[in-house]
Design a protein around this nucleic acid. Structure first.
Lengths: 130, 130
DNA sequence: TAGCCATGTTAGAAAACATAACATGAAACT
DNA sequence: AGTTTCATGTTATGTTTTCTAACATGGCTA
């Protein structure tokens, strides 16, 4: 299950593709980034490059907005989710492997930990790629 | 195993990304297309859009070239592979389901049938995304 | 030696994307 | 009611990426 993660987290999609895949406008996508809800990579020439995980995130943000939750609320949701995962790791006192560490560095922001939460299942439901 | 196919065959990658992923130059990628070994989609604005399957194909073409096989040879290889798959379907007289038909329409060119051939496993070996 | 093959390089045009600023309708607040 | 704020639309201007087409070239091969 390592290759799939690589695939999902590899930043390869330009914003135009993301627009089609998510049905969001460039304005929306950039605004969510401004709000630090998605942090795409950049090409050498400064073009945004998105991963499949980014797309999941964008779709989830949009879902929350459609549910009437505002940016502040969404940010809080992600804050808590990160928090929960951190403490979960602590409780279980899991010894962290090297690759765990690498994942955490990346996930700390992405907030897509190893355990498949119900929320993430709902991502998939909305993901046009799956 | 349906979603994965969709993901693999979805044309979403611009040539710049493909260059990085395959280590091929734009010239090479376009030349292989000229030789009809990869047939990327096009955006409305005529930009090439590649799928993961396309990337597999590009890498395989390159491997063959590195092995000293020339374009004519590579084309012949794919011709025969298509042929074999077609006749295999015929021999087994498999009744084709609707989704089979859809796949075939797409695969007839892509030459990535339902059965995981040894060759395709070798694709994966070389695929930087997996 | 002459030609072909796979690829490099260059030029010019068009598409896609970036940032920034201003505009706006719907909510929320005072 | 009037005023802010929020999420998004729109427009302008500049840069990056990609496109096609043409010419160049080193290594094989007839």
């Amino acid at each position: 299950m390592k290759g799939k993660e690589l695939l999902r987290s590899r930043s390869v999609l330009p914003i135009g593709t993301v627009m089609k895949l998510t049905n969001l406008t460039a304005r929306q996508i950039r605004y969510y980034e401004e709000q630090e809800l998605v942090l795409p990579d950049r090409s050498e020439g400064n073009r945004r490059l998105y991963s499949l995980n980014d797309i999941d995130r964008l779709l989830e943000v949009k879902d929350y907005l459609d549910d009437g939750i505002n940016m502040a609320g969404i940010k809080e949701i992600y804050r808590q989710r990160r928090q929960k995962q951190a403490s979960k790791r602590h409780e279980e006192n899991k010894p962290l492997t090297d690759s765990d560490l690498r994942r955490i560095l990346h996930d700390e922001f992405m907030n897509l930990g190893g355990l498949d939460t119900p929320d993430q299942q709902s991502f998939r439901t909305h993901n046009p790629l799956m």
